[in-house]
């Protein structure tokens, strides 16, 4: 009986380059009169591109086993930004409570999504680029990222603009987290490549490309 459980978590070993960004599919329609029209198709989704450097064989074995067990795009896995697993301002005896007790999202008339987190510590900072993850009904995940830096007030509440907005499907009782916030992704088969084993080390050149599975 194996010990592996799904969804697996993305390994972080040997990562030298990471791009973890929300992707939009949009179309531009410039007109001769000077107007530029634009329309966006569908909803934003997170895309991960990671390239791996030289690894020891022990590290490479972990990646090879992980990639094999993913069976290409068959199994969704838990992915997160490897460079920002905690908020920027934590540690060094700064106030840090990774699990906000409450969350709510308000959309301003200009479309900006403002997330209000409650139950943090007074003075705790949610910095630009910090991730906020939401989990509900035993494993469904939503992910967003702060686009401004705000400090929590005396009661531990902070309002910060986020992108992309949290979709309305997320129920109000979803649990929020600032620590290793992520989403479920699937590997992109054509673009994910594995490097080669050399004589002394496993060569650089492994590329992992994955997109968020919004349906899960």
């Amino acid at each position: 009986m194996g010990e592996l459980t799904f969804p697996q978590t993305l390994p972080t070993l040997g990562t030298v380059g990471v791009s973890f960004e929300p992707e939009e599919v949009a179309f531009l329609s410039p007109e001769a009169g000077g107007t530029i029209g634009a329309v966006t198709a569908g909803f934003p989704r997170w895309v991960l591109r990671a390239s791996l450097g030289q690894m020891t064989f022990a590290q490479a074995d972990i990646w090879r086993a992980w990639l094999a067990v993913q069976r290409g795009p068959q199994r969704p896995f838990f992915a997160y930004d490897m460079d920002r697993q905690h908020p920027r301002f934590h540690g060094k005896s700064r106030p840090y409570q990774p699990a906000p007790a409450t969350w709510s999202q308000a959309i301003r008339p200009d479309g900006l999504a403002v997330l209000t987190l409650g139950g943090l510590l007074a003075g705790q900072v949610v910095s630009i680029g910090d991730y906020v993850g939401l989990i509900w009904s035993g494993g469904k995940l939503a992910l967003t990222r702060a686009v401004e830096t705000r400090g929590a007030d005396g009661s531990g509440s902070v309002s910060v603009a986020v992108e992309p907005p949290i979709p309305p499907v997320v129920p109000a009782d979803a649990a929020a987290t600032l620590r290793r916030a992520g989403c479920l992704m699937r590997l992109v088969p054509g673009e994910t490549k594995l490097g080669e084993a050399g004589i002394t080390h496993f060569s650089a050149g492994t590329t992992i490309v994955a997109v968020q599975d919004l349906i899960r």
Binding site: I36, G37, V39, T40, A41, G42, F43
Partner: peptide, 10 residues
């Protein structure tokens, strides 16, 4: 929203 270019179409 269409005029402002912010519409999302599904």
């Amino acid at each position: 929203a269409i005029e402002a270019g912010t519409a999302r179409v599904v």
